[in-house]
């Protein structure tokens, strides 16, 4: 490993190459924000509505949940594509992800911080040195119509709110789609002749491990739409002002039933993301053009004065 460090610095010195050795995400998309466009009229509440196709999409990778003790190391859903749209009254999110099986216990959720206090993305669990706030979770499950509007502040505190404000609608289609994800690859180190190499001291075979990216074709896509008013009267809800950057996180469960009778993923065993951003496009404020125009005029004025000065007192 020390060699890697040396190489790295050597690369620095010759000014090239080091970047190739740094880890990077499988997902090359650049955005970290779910951008909700502002539209006039009704929002597309149907997951298959054509209107969704015109909206910008942001893809977020998911990882197995690691905070609860009953964690798993592999999850079915590797990433989720998100679109959003609002009409200044309501907001709609579309989640889209590959899941090869349609199961009654398939589920997905959005999570937001509530109020001014920062909340931990794992159900707003308490933080050591920072006083955190609660989170608002919008939960959809295939065998339950609609969505659950939930609140949590710490593990084991998740509960349905008294006032339910979120609607959801989902559709599964057997579409073909390609997914990329990282896997741990284990290989025996071989010498030039192809013989497995052995550790000089212990005599054990030397095992190389690395993370590699694999591509897979999956048949089956879930599309889920969540709809809620931008602001509600419920103090337990996240409230959205246009133009701001609230945090958003995602979770997905593959509810496939295993032969043992357990679900493949349920409860704390799920695919999650940590916090990203969400932004509801603010209505156009035309005074911005005015400011721009004033700046043009001012700049032209300053330019005029400078040139006059330059013309008058041409420096030697």
């Amino acid at each position: 490993m020390m060699k890697g460090t040396h190489c790295r610095l050597l690369a620095l010195l010759i000014g090239a190459g080091a970047g190739l050795m740094s880890p990077s995400s499988v997902f090359s998309q650049e955005s970290v924000v779910v951008r909700a466009k502002l539209v006039q009229g009704d929002l597309p509440t149907d997951p298959t509505a054509a209107a969704w196709n015109t909206l910008p999409v942001t893809e977020f990778p998911l990882s197995p949940q690691v905070h609860w003790q009953k964690r798993i190391q592999q999850v079915t859903v590797k990433s989720v594509k998100v679109r959003a749209v609002h009409n200044n009254k309501q907001i709609a999110f579309l989640l889209e992800y590959a899941d090869p099986t349609q199961d009654p216990a398939d589920a997905a959720a959005l999570e937001f911080m509530v109020g001014d206090k920062k909340a931990h993305f794992a159900h707003g669990q308490p933080m050591g040195q920072v006083e955190g706030g609660p989170v608002n979770i919008w939960y959809w499950r295939n065998d339950t119509p609609g969505a659950a509007d939930m609140t949590a502040k710490g593990f084991g505190t998740l509960k349905k709110e008294a006032q339910q404000d979120v609607q959801a609608k989902a559709v599964w289609k057997p579409e073909k789609t390609k997914i990329n994800y990282k896997v741990r690859k284990i290989a025996l180190r071989k010498d030039a002749k192809g013989e497995p190499m052995k550790d000089a001291k212990t005599g054990d075979p030397i095992v190389d491990e690395e993370t590699s990216v694999v591509e897979e074709e999956v048949t089956g896509v879930w599309r889920i739409v969540f709809v809620r008013a931008l602001t509600t009267t419920d103090a337990q809800d996240a409230q959205f002002q246009t133009g701001t950057f609230p945090n958003i996180a995602f979770a997905v469960w593959d509810g496939k039933k295993l032969e043992s009778g357990d679900f493949k993923e349920s409860g704390s065993q799920k695919a999650v993301s940590s916090w990203w951003y969400f932004n509801a496009e603010p209505p156009m404020d035309y005074s911005v053009y005015l400011y721009g125009l004033v700046a043009v005029v001012l700049a032209a004025g300053v330019e005029f004065v400078i040139i006059r000065k330059v013309k008058k007192g041409q420096p030697a």
Binding site: M1, P23, S25, V26, F27, V32, F60, P61, L62, S63, P64, V66, Q73, Q74, K78, S79, Y181, K182, V183, R184, E209, E210, T211, A271, V272, S273, S274, W275, W276
Partner: peptide, 16 residues
């Protein structure tokens, strides 16, 4: 954190 100790584990992508 990855088998090569470089932060590139199979589950590293979802976190920021």
């Amino acid at each position: 954190h990855g088998p090569k100790f470089n932060g590139n584990g199979p589950a590293s992508d979802g976190f920021n």
